[in-house]
């Protein structure tokens, strides 16, 4: 009798174990986050901690709303700022990207390098002067003051320009002969052709604004103006349950959950753009 063993390689088994470990390292923290956000405060303090919550409550959410700055207000602030920044960036970057791609003019190279070099300036070298400028413009503690420094992105200009240069100029010439003016060419002919680029640029800019922390932290002062990351950082300092030194982990978890849900949702919906976006940029703010 011949045993025909299906060849099982040790390396395959090890690889599978490794992959399961990677997946666990993502899912287990997510699981802890979700259960903590729905536990009651007395259950959070229990020793040993419960791994399956006995009672699901909204205590964390309510406490965060009460003391840590209204999380739903922060959610609205974050959405307004991120969507606003994304729209203006796409609009202005399309204009600039188009100009760099199809026109010939003096000092174009120098100007292009000047625009792209912004990419090399870390935010940290700019915030002190920004703070002074915003003081002058009476925009301290103002959401518009946070957003305005970021309504045109160097990366977006670069990325959109690269896409437009790949379009054969005959398209543009033909449209011009037909009498279309430049605005029409850009928004009605070029925009539909560079849709993938716009998708990636939307994802990148939305996420950047969504994650943006340092500058809003410096500029925003009152709770009703906070964006979500600032609220998450501040909720750390809510203490509860008569235990002065123990932060209210339920409130932290609840706020964090509200903060990451839109991102996870986006990731599920437009995963292709996400990966492309991150590989194309790599740079986090």
């Amino acid at each position: 009798m011949v045993y025909k063993n299906k060849k099982i390689k040790v390396s395959d088994i090890l690889a599978n174990i490794f992959m399961i470990l990677i997946i666990a390292s993502v899912f287990i923290p997510m699981y802890f986050l979700i259960i903590t956000s729905f536990k009651s405060f007395s259950e959070i303090l229990r020793v040993p901690p419960t791994f399956f919550p006995e009672k699901l409550t909204l205590e964390g959410f309510l406490l965060a709303k009460e003391h840590g700055g209204d999380i739903f207000r922060s959610l609205a602030n974050s959405l307004i700022m991120s969507i606003g920044v994304t729209i203006t960036t796409l609009f202005f970057s399309s204009l600039a990207g188009y100009a760099f791609a199809v026109y010939r003019f003096k000092f174009k190279e120098a100007l292009f390098i000047a625009v792209i070099s912004k990419y090399l300036l870390p935010e940290i070298v700019l915030i002190i002067p920004w703070y002074w400028i915003m003081g002058r413009l009476k925009l301290i503690d103002n959401l518009f003051g946070v957003a305005v420094v970021n309504i045109i992105g160097a990366w977006s200009i670069f990325y959109i320009r690269n896409y437009i240069t790949q379009i054969p100029p005959d398209y543009i010439e033909a449209a011009r002969i037909d009498g279309a003016n430049e605005n029409r060419i850009l928004f009605q002919i070029i925009w539909p052709m560079i849709r993938p680029a716009l998708g990636v640029a939307t994802t990148v800019n939305f996420l950047w604004s969504w994650n943006w922390f340092l500058w809003p932290l410096v500029l925003l002062q009152s709770k009703q103006n906070f964006t979500l990351p600032i609220t998450v950082a501040f909720v750390r300092y809510i203490y509860g349950g008569g235990q002065e030194s123990v932060p209210h982990y339920g409130a932290i978890a609840a706020t964090t959950l509200v903060y990451i849900l839109p991102v996870l949702l986006l990731y599920i919906l437009v995963q292709k753009w996400f990966v492309e976006a991150f590989i194309a940029t790599g740079i986090k703010r």
Binding site: S25, V26, P29, M30, F32, L33, T36, L207, W210, N211, F213, P229, V232, A233, R236, P247, Y249, I252, A253, T255, T256, Y259, I260, V263, L264, Y267, F274, F278, K284
Partner: peptide
């Protein structure tokens, strides 16, 4: 982990 915001990931680790 790379995709979720830094502040959120850090908060999860704090918990």
């Amino acid at each position: 982990p790379y995709m979720i915001p830094d502040v959120a990931a850090a908060a999860i680790w704090l918990i």
